[in-house]
């Protein structure tokens, strides 16, 4: 009698508990994708591929299996969501346009953090969209060509001083000119311009800084400052000097595709404080590098993450390591 009671008790406790756990698990499974975030070395996003129909809700349960991660969709206004280790965060997404979207990790989770990306395929009737190639393609710029400025300013140019020349610079202030010319080219053009012959070399550098200044805005620079801190500073350094915490760890090898690079030296991140390098790069070239990535260096491809506007903001921010702005 007692023995039977004991058996029933054990069965109720253990089997009941088991059923309850199974039921709870099953509840969590129904129709909802659980997206696991792991450091790229141990798997990255699992799964790294999602499919949903346009205008249909995509319910996600986000969780991290190791450290803090974040979730965001490239080129979207959807605010980034933090993913905490062992905690489930629920999120519902809806896409009205068919196409391919990239989701990426927004919190640095190690040296390979930027490799942590996945894609969402949104199916449906798509409207034919005209895709404009990036500027560097349009103007036929070889962004991998080595460049080194011959002329550099003797001190940090000031956009404020350059403002004095504003009436003489109108031809150089257009966005087309600014984007397709490196500051050095602009300076050489100004130097060659006979109407500006009266100005000293440094005054013309101030003018170049002013051209930069008029092609950006305070809002753009402050947005870019934030983007830079979140996405770039870990390698390029908070000060832009290429001395970020991961600067000496970016090994240009991961996966078979990059095997050709194995055995190569570590490519150090670009030092934006080096005038020889940055003043000889045009905004189009910098934007090209930014959206395409470094091809074998540790530089990620940001084209699917940042909007075009954001890339131009970031480019203008990079020059702020060379120029003093108007305050």
């Amino acid at each position: 009698m007692n023995e039977k009671l004991a058996l029933v008790f054990v069965i109720v406790v253990l089997v009941g508990g088991g059923i309850a756990i199974g039921f709870g698990w099953w509840q969590g499974q129904s129709n909802i994708v659980t997206l696991h975030a792991r450091m790229p070395e141990t798997g990255g996003w699992i799964p790294d591929n999602l499919t949903v129909a346009a205008n249909q809700p995509l319910d996600l349960r986000l969780t991290s299996d190791d450290v803090q991660h974040g979730f965001a969709i490239g080129q979207s206004d959807q605010p980034a969501v933090d993913i905490n280790p062992g905690v489930v965060t629920e999120l519902t997404l809806k896409f009205d346009q068919p196409g391919t979207y990239t989701y990426y990790c927004t919190r640095w989770c190690g040296v390979n953090h930027w490799r942590m990306r996945g894609t969402i395929t949104v199916t449906g009737e798509s409207v034919e969209q005209v895709v404009t190639p990036p500027l560097f393609v349009q103007i036929g710029l070889d962004i991998d060509a080595p460049h080194e400025a011959e002329f550099i300013p003797s001190s940090k140019p000031s956009a404020q001083n350059g403002e004095n020349l504003r009436f003489e610079l109108s031809a150089y202030q257009t966005s087309e000119y600014y984007r397709s010319h490196s500051p050095e080219q602009a300076w050489v053009d100004l130097r060659k311009d006979l109407t500006l012959a009266a100005y000293s070399d440094l005054q013309l550098w101030d003018a170049v800084a002013f051209i930069w200044q008029t092609n950006t805005s305070e809002d753009a620079l402050s947005e870019a400052e934030e983007l830079y801190a979140q996405n770039c500073a870990a390698c390029h350094g908070v000060s832009g000097a290429g001395d970020g915490v991961f600067s000496d760890q970016q090994v240009p090898v991961m996966g078979e595709a990059d095997e050709a690079f194995s055995g190569h030296e570590i490519v150090l991140p670009t030092d934006f404080t080096d005038p020889h390098h940055i003043l000889s790069a045009s905004p189009a070239a910098l934007q090209g590098k930014l959206i395409r990535g470094g091809m074998g260096t540790g530089m990620p491809m940001w084209g699917v993450i940042f909007t075009e506007e954001q890339t131009w903001s970031l480019v203008s921010y990079l020059y702020s390591f060379q120029f003093k702005e108007v305050h």
């Binding site: 253990l14 508990g17 756990i21 969780t63 991290s64 299996d65 190791d66 280790p85 062992g86 905690v87």
Partner: peptide, 19 residues
């Protein structure tokens, strides 16, 4: 029951120890 739950959660639960 707690012991078995510890085994089950260890095997099938989150790999994050503190959780």
């Amino acid at each position: 029951a707690g012991f078995l739950l510890a085994i089950l959660s260890g095997l099938f639960g989150t790999p994050v120890g503190s959780r």
